[in-house]
């Protein structure tokens, strides 16, 4: 009987650089890699904000009691938010700043709602590394972050220091003259 031995197999392998077995190896490996990724994904995804955190995404706030020149800090999505009732002087100062002086150019109008220019609503975390800036201080009559020395002006725009961006204005709308919905 003809022996279907080692010689035959090795000759076959030498002749063709890729054969059926190579294809099976690669296909098996590919399926294995996809399977491993599919298993890892939920293990990573569980780290994302959970449903209870996301559920707090929208709040309403009554701004009537806030006097001119007064500022309150409220919580939205676990973040502190400044609600500032600006004085006419501060609004004027903010509007007078030439765009060329700004690191992150944005007009005062773009940061407030029309007809409600006295109200400045911003997330109270410094855009550098997240500290809460101190109100009505710094060199630009706005906010000063004590952590790394960022100065913001009376429209919450970055003027000096390591922060790259203006204080973030969250999505919000005036439901009435005294009721604001954030988120």
């Amino acid at each position: 009987m003809h022996s279907y031995g080692e010689t035959d197999l090795s000759t076959q392998a030498e002749h063709s650089s890729t054969n059926r077995r190579d294809f099976l190896y690669i296909a098996t490996g590919a399926v294995g890699a996809v399977g491993a990724a599919a298993v890892v994904w939920p293990l990573i995804n569980q780290l994302n904000p959970d449903a209870s955190t996301l559920a707090l995404a929208s709040i309403q706030y009554n701004i009537a009691p806030i006097e001119e020149g007064q500022s309150v800090t409220i919580t939205w999505r676990g973040l502190p938010v400044f609600v500032r009732h600006r004085t006419p002087k501060e609004i004027e100062e903010a509007k007078a700043v030439p765009m060329a002086d700004l690191k992150d150019p944005e007009t005062d109008e773009a940061r407030t709602k029309p007809g409600h220019e006295q109200w400045l609503i911003m997330i109270a975390n410094c855009t550098h590394l997240g500290c809460i800036p101190v109100g009505q201080s710094g060199d630009f009559d706005g906010w000063f972050c004590p952590c790394h020395g960022s100065h913001y002006d009376s429209a919450g725009r970055i003027r000096r220091g390591p922060a790259p961006k203006n204080l973030v204005v969250p999505p919000y709308e005036f439901l009435s003259d005294t009721l604001v919905q954030i988120g």
């Binding site: 994302n48 904000p49 959970d50 955190t53 999505r77 676990g78 973040l79 975390n125």
Partner: peptide
Amino acid sequence: KQLVLGGFAVGNPTLNR
């Protein structure tokens, strides 16, 4: 950042992990 903290700010999920 949200993936690391498990929220929009440092909170209970952050402390746990």
